[in-house]
Structures are given as C-alpha cells and as structure tokens.
C-alpha cells in the first residue's frame, strides 16, 4: 500500500506528489502576490509564510528523492510517440531540479540580505550565503527566472497528464488512485 510496485505508485509517493503540488501552487500564487504588493506591517507575515512553505517544499523534495531510492517509482507507461516520452522524461527531471533549486536560491538570497530567515514564525535557519548585495541580487534574480521556468514546465506537465488522462492510458489514474 505505502510502497511503489513495478506497475503502481504507492500511497507514499502519491501523497508526496499531491502535497507538493498543492504547496507549489500555493507558493507560486503567494510569490506572485508578494512581488506585486507594497510591503507593510499587515503583509510581513506573508513573507514568513512563503519562506516556511518553500522550506517544506525543499524538504519534501529531498524526502521524495530518498523515497524513490528506497522504493523506486514504476516505469513510465510510455507513449507511442517517442518525442513525447523524451519530453515527459526531461520535464520530470527538470521539475525535480527546480524543486530543489528554487527554494535554495530563495534561501541563499534571503541569507545574503543579512536578515534572519525565519520559518514557522520562530525557527531561524542558518545563513547559507555571505551578506552581500551581489549574492542577494543574483539569488533573487535566479529565484525569479527559475520560477518562471517552473511555471512553464508545470503547464507542460499538467497538459501532458490531462492528455494522457483523456486518452485513458492509465498514466493519470496511477498517480491519482494508485491503480
């Protein structure tokens, strides 16, 4: 039930997938809001929430990678069209890379500001970059660019999943119901 099999996603992988999907969508909305509002006392908590959710996402991405070493994901069902398989494979790899790189770039940039990186309203994370305007600007620039790449890849990922779902080849059902 919890572990993956050669043909099915176990409950652990499915929970990780969907909880991360919810987190990432929330983070994308929250991050977009934060870039468009004027900071003030009433909105400061949103920055803290963004950092908290980002660190949870980074942690879950690591858990997911470890879990897939312990309980490998089933092989892709594959598509009759070869290039679609290559795109799907590349998209999955890129999504994993971004799930690590985006939170890390945010953590690096936040560390470089010289301000504490606080999650859950009280836990101060150690800085992982020197206090430097260059690191801060570069870090936030990379954070923003990678986020836009993530949005594009998620659109591709969702489109591919919906397409497979409409075709009824079982790909979508495996990650929703584990069948």
């Amino acid at each position: 039930m919890w572990r993956n099999t050669a043909t099915r996603f176990g409950l652990t992988s499915r929970l990780l997938h969907w909880s991360m999907a919810a987190l990432i969508l929330t983070l994308l909305v929250l991050g977009t809001v934060l870039t468009s509002i004027q900071p003030g006392l009433s909105t400061l908590w949103l920055y803290g929430q963004h950092k908290t959710l980002g660190i949870i996402t980074l942690s879950l991405a690591l858990v997911r990678l470890i879990w897939h070493r312990i309980s490998p994901a089933p092989a892709s069902l594959g598509s009759p069209v070869a290039w679609q398989n290559r795109v799907a494979r590349a998209t999955h790899l890129a999504l994993y890379a971004l799930m690590l790189a985006i939170p890390l770039s945010g953590w690096i940039a936040s560390s470089a500001t010289g301000l504490d990186v606080v999650i859950f309203g009280q836990i101060i994370l150690p800085p992982i970059a020197p206090v430097s305007e260059a690191w801060e600007n570069t870090g936030f620039a990379i954070h923003g660019i990678l986020t836009k790449v993530l949005m594009a890849l998620l659109a591709l990922h969702i489109a591919g999943a919906v397409l497979r779902g409409l075709k009824g080849d079982g790909t979508l059902r495996r990650i929703t119901k584990g069948l």
Binding site: L44, T113, G114, L115, D116, E133
Partner: peptide, 13 residues
C-alpha cells in the same frame, strides 16, 4: 518596532 526592522537597520545595507 519589529525584529526585521531592527536587524535591517543595523545591517550592512
């Protein structure tokens, strides 16, 4: 008046 402000104020920027 709030911790981030104090930290930012005393920081290098």
């Amino acid at each position: 008046s709030f911790p981030f402000a104090a930290q930012a104020m005393k920081g290098p920027k």
